[in-house]
Design a protein around this nucleic acid. Sequence first.
DNA 1: CTGAAAGCGCTTACAG
DNA 2: CTGAAAGCGCTTACAG
Lengths: 347, 347
Amino acid sequence: MGNSRVTLKDLAKELNLSPSTISRAISGHPAISDATRKLVQQKADELGFTPNSIASSFRKKKTQSIGIIVPKIDIHFHSLVISGIEEYAYSKGYNVTIFQSKDSFEREKEITRILQNRMVEGIIICLSNETKSYAHFKKFAKLGVPVIFYDRVPTNFNANKIVINDYESAFKATEHLIQQGCSRIAHIAGNQSTHIFKDRLEGYKTALKKYKLPIDPSLILETKNLTYEEGAECAKKMLALPELPDGLFCSNDYTAISAIQVFQKAHIKVPEQIAVVGFSNYPISRVIEPNLTTINDRAFQMGQAAASLLIRQIDDTDSFVEFETITLKTDLVVRASSMRKENIPNT
Amino acid sequence: MGNSRVTLKDLAKELNLSPSTISRAISGHPAISDATRKLVQQKADELGFTPNSIASSFRKKKTQSIGIIVPKIDIHFHSLVISGIEEYAYSKGYNVTIFQSKDSFEREKEITRILQNRMVEGIIICLSNETKSYAHFKKFAKLGVPVIFYDRVPTNFNANKIVINDYESAFKATEHLIQQGCSRIAHIAGNQSTHIFKDRLEGYKTALKKYKLPIDPSLILETKNLTYEEGAECAKKMLALPELPDGLFCSNDYTAISAIQVFQKAHIKVPEQIAVVGFSNYPISRVIEPNLTTINDRAFQMGQAAASLLIRQIDDTDSFVEFETITLKTDLVVRASSMRKENIPNT
DNA sequence: CTGAAAGCGCTTACAG
DNA sequence: CTGAAAGCGCTTACAG
């Protein structure tokens, strides 16, 4: 079947004009007369000409495409970020090519090679949880290809980063529990080798200190992956304590929800006997009964911010800025799971 | 900063070999001696040469990339499909470029133009809900670029499709409720202008007919978008009926879950007084209490199947097959929300 | 086993 | 306002 695309040359021949003129007419060069432009446009439509952007990319060394690496696309947080990136990039004429590292360091390295070959103009990445070395990103600095890290970002490595203030957010969440009258507040923590979960634990501790509450190690439960199942295990451990905590701050929503369900099955009332706060504001937090108080981590906005910073850096080739870190605001979304006093929930 | 990539020519000059030989050595052409191959590989590593795949794509007219169009990336179903596509495509050396139509027909058309210009080798798409005409896909047939539709697929239009049997699945779900002893079974239906929701309604009706149960129009509640909020409204309408249904089959999980919550707030027991079945097997179905019986629609596998079919069609340029429709198996995942008799749930 | 040459479809500096 | 010419970095049919 006629795999034959119509090219600039074909158009030129048809119209007895030079390819240069056709090229300029199509791309809206100002030096082309209106008459010629119209003529060319008409013929292009007639013959079904559309510019071959691979040829154009090759010639101009501008691919108008950016690469995204995420651990897994179907994690809701990442799909929101990707959605934000795509939306912004599309509005600026950039395409988005997606890769999953599957949390494999080797695969992440391989993907950076592919992205280099593909000549993407910039990269947005959430590191795999295996990644401890960042040498595979150094080549992009040499090539002038900006890289933006989000969520799981490198430590001890200069780079562009989009983050939220995990420490502050955790502080806010814990402080809220204290203000609701809780004094024995437990924490379900994420893997402490990941700095965002470390920061959340720190924020929790700082809030306790500020309000002169003791830090009780038996109330701090570290998990590997903050899974639904791990949340349930942690809740059971709390039930086995000599005295039940009266508040619980969890490093994500899954563990918060499974903990609530374990408590409820043990006929412990949430929030009356134990008030619970999660982290991320997943859709599920508005489904669980009672609705979950949680931190809105602005995943969609994070994607938009990452794309915006990236494209700004692609365009400003001779800026003096080497690296930028953008910290996004978070909100505490107060719902029923933590409401022990007469407040008005904000969602 | 030295934006200078090392090229084939540079390598050739360094080694006093022709660019042809370098090209063949790098791409593993069999006619190259081992000695030369090693020499070239070594020098390539030394100079940090990596092939420019844009140049290669341009020359070979093979971009090794496929385009995906989804209504919205952060809908869990689509993110699972995309994940399946990326996984399969990556294993075959294809890259995946993603676009969101945002359920806009105009944007969908615009995206197909971009994909044509970008010379993707194939396209996987879930149609926007505004799309009624498929003329914008015809150009790809002429160009020999295969297009695979999934989920929301065209009707009355010959095309490659990956689908599940919505009719059968709905039949299975409804039959299960009947076997659990329900005889007044309601249905929360999706928009009847979308064929998959029409099929689900048909499957429901057929099951009732088969078991000689009456079809009661007051028990069939159509929604616009099957949202959580619409599910709650429908449940309230059921509560207002002279007699409550004893079974409920919903066209998705969100409506099923909100209905369950409305029932529970009205002190109606699920499944004892009303047994509920959803559709999609979203993660949330294992969180709600009681856990939701639902149809596993195999979104990840749908993505893999779409990518596999697409790449098969890209490779088989001279096959006699014009179009293919693949129907995937679905499972009824039986959980507590529908268990009125002593069965063993399968998850 | 290796090389010389042509060309993929554009863009752009230079010239008029 | 328009054109001739060179070239982006590869690949491949042809030749030896």
